[in-house]
Nucleic acid binder design. Structure first.
Length: 585
DNA sequence: TTTGGCTGCCC
DNA sequence: ATTCTGC
DNA sequence: GCAGAATGGGCAGCCAAA
């Protein structure tokens, strides 16, 4: 099969915004494709090469694809970079760069899907000295042999942003339509949630239809897609949604872990299904001590703790553990963690995903003998908003983000991979009265990409230090803008544009555009963190660290009443940091 | 040998 | 992570 | 309300450049 066929399908998908139409386009394509090639096609459609749990990664993204485009098209690197700023999409950049190319590649062999995919695999496999050069060469060869639409989508696969309006849920719709019926969609989705491998599901559907997919079951050492939650900002609202009663549970601020236990062996997986076993040997040992089952899949939050006081520490602490390959033993000492278990997905070989939540909780309690390092999450079944609010306050006092609310209805199954209102998170920062906003000055901006093309994708925000008369960066800001905001901000900032960084601005970050510090926006965040890159109150808490805002977003409020020097001061931000319960010392 | 850009993945 | 938008 | 696509801070590792 030619890659061209897939690219043409992508063109048609891109041209519509109707999901029904996308489903039809995809279903028609899936029926047409040879079953032996559908797997590759499905991964590429997700902007991936493999399912999430495969540790092999492309190791090539935004910057490298631009180099490959420059190399293959003969355009200069700076030309390609400028084009990227303007177009906001590496696919369009590839197309435009090749328009100007002198010699055409009319005589090249058409790209087959197989060759395309195998070249991408070669890019993923290449490592060590000279590997970046090799990746660029391999990609550039593909681009040289590609037609314009092929080049576009090849470039987008590299960045993992296909921008088709199609993702896994639409692929599942299409698989059901193509190889079974719409009514069978749930079975298809379940196979995906349980196997975490859309390519496998597609291949099974193409080869054996629903029968194939029915052979896919929950299995130890095969991570399943994590169940996710919606958000709400009051216990009243939550209780109403949950039908009057639900379980409230501490929401710990750590790393989510899915632990697979079989005959004394333990493997750990992250929310995105990366294997974390080697990074948390202490947790592995803890589970071996505390779990009493031949086989089990349990889930919990891995939270940084102070081993002397038992108190929870900031998220940043456990970040030092994640992804670590070297110095793991030292890191266990320096950044100890506690695993707070909250669910049981499989027990002694039995799949519990279809059981109501409280049954799973009982199963969990029946196999865990908690100790200092492996605990059960704090949980209460409540029907009163007042009691829920009191429990919420306890959670905050104990250093948690807030509460999770979990349905206890008969229908409260473990819905892998699905958002939905079986689980709802209720965080401190959702309550405006418990979460201060800050007024920050725009000092710079970054070119928008994708649907933000032609606008600023994000702004560079600063506090004011009146002692030094300096503006110090504290955060980028790219969330909370609606379409009207984006257009308005573009206009509002145009008189402030300056060619270089303003002389009163302290920034280690290089923005695409710079402004005189004048426009003030109201910003909400979850908390203040220590930052290696932002300059706000730099050195005040720790040498070589400034302050930054975690989860920053625009509240929608323009502070037209303020000028630049009336922004929140760096000293005020420092005071807010020091007033926080959890601080890195 | 050190530094810094880039990537991927936690939240 | 949060947020917005078209369906 | 779902699904998708914009966007954040910050960490470790890899590789190339200094």
């Amino acid at each position: 099969m030619l890659f061209r066929e897939l690219a043409d399908t992508y063109e048609r998908l891109e041209a519509t915004s109707s999901r029904l139409e996308m489903t039809d386009i995809l279903a028609e394509a899936f029926r047409r494709f040879d079953p032996s090639e559908i797997r590759m096609a499905v991964y590429l459609t997700q902007g991936q090469l493999y399912p999430d749990f495969n540790p092999l990664k492309l190791g090539m993204a935004d910057k490298m694809i631009l180099k490959a485009i420059a190399f293959a098209s003969g355009a200069g690197e700076s030309f390609v970079q400028d084009l990227m700023l303007k177009e906001g999409d590496p696919g369009i950049v590839a197309q435009k760069a090749f328009q100007n190319k002198k010699q055409t590649t009319l005589f090249s062999e058409p790209l087959t899907l197989k060759r395309t995919y195998e070249t991408l695999e070669a890019i993923a496999r290449s490592e060590g000295g000279g590997s970046q050069d090799l990746k660029i060469k391999l990609m550039s060869k593909l681009l040289s042999d590609a037609s314009s639409p092929e080049a576009k989508f090849l470039s987008r696969v590299i960045t993992g942003r296909m921008r088709l309006g199609v993702s896994s849920m639409t692929v599942l719709d299409a698989l059901a339509v193509a190889f079974a019926t719409k009514e069978d969609r749930d079975a298809v989705e379940r196979a995906f949630n349980v196997s975490s491998d859309l390519g496998l599901v597609a291949e099974e559907m193409a080869l054996h239809g629903l029968e194939g997919v029915r052979t896919i079951h929950v299995q130890v050492n095969r991570p399943l897609r994590a169940m996710l939650a919606e958000r709400m900002s009051s216990p009243e609202e939550i209780l109403e949604k949950m039908g009057g009663t639900c379980a409230f549970e501490y929401k710990y601020d750590g790393v989510r872990l899915q632990a697979h236990i079989c005959k004394g062996e333990v493997r750990l997986f992250s929310r995105k299904l990366d294997e974390l076993t080697s990074q948390f040997p202490d947790v592995v040992a803890g589970l071996k001590r505390t779990i009493r089952a031949d086989s089990a899949i349990v889930e919990g939050e891995c939270v940084p703790v102070d081993t002397n006081t038992g108190e929870f520490l900031p998220f940043q602490e456990v970040s030092h553990r994640r992804g670590r390959k070297y110095g793991v033993e030292e890191a266990i000492e320096d950044y100890p963690v506690k695993l707070c278990l909250f669910d049981c997905i499989l027990k002694d070989g039995e799949d519990l995903t279809d059981r109501p939540f409280l049954q799973r909780r009982e199963a969990l309690m029946s196999i865990v003998e908690p100790d200092d390092s492996v605990a059960l999450s704090e949980i209460r079944v409540l029907s009163s908003a007042d009691e829920a609010q009191a429990f919420f306050q306890e959670a905050i006092k104990d250093g948690c983000e807030g509460l999770m609310a979990k349905s206890v209805a008969e229908t409260s199954v473990y819905r892998a991979g699905n958002r939905g209102f079986l689980w709802i998170k209720y965080k401190k920062e959702y309550r405006s009265e418990m979460n201060d906003t800050v007024d920050l000055v725009v000092v710079g901006a970054f070119a928008g990409r994708g649907k933000r093309k032609g606008f600023y994708g994000a702004l560079l925000m600063a506090t004011y230090d009146p002692e030094a008369d300096r503006f110090e960066t504290v955060s980028k800001l790219g969330s909370g803008f609606d379409d009207a905001n984006l257009a308005a901000i573009l206009e509002m900032l145009s008189p402030d544009r300056i060619p270089e960084k303003h002389h009163l601005v302290d920034s280690k970050m290089e923005a695409d555009f710079w402004f005189s510090p004048r426009l003030v926006l109201e910003v909400r965040g979850a908390e203040i963190t220590l930052s290696p890159i932002h300059t706000c109150s730099f050195g005040s808490v720790r040498p070589d660290s400034g302050l930054a805002i975690r989860f920053p977003r625009f509240t929608g409020r323009f502070r037209d009443d303020k000028e630049g020097r009336e922004a929140t001061t760096s000293q005020e931000l420092l005071a807010m940091y020091q007033a926080q319960l959890k601080r890195v010392e």
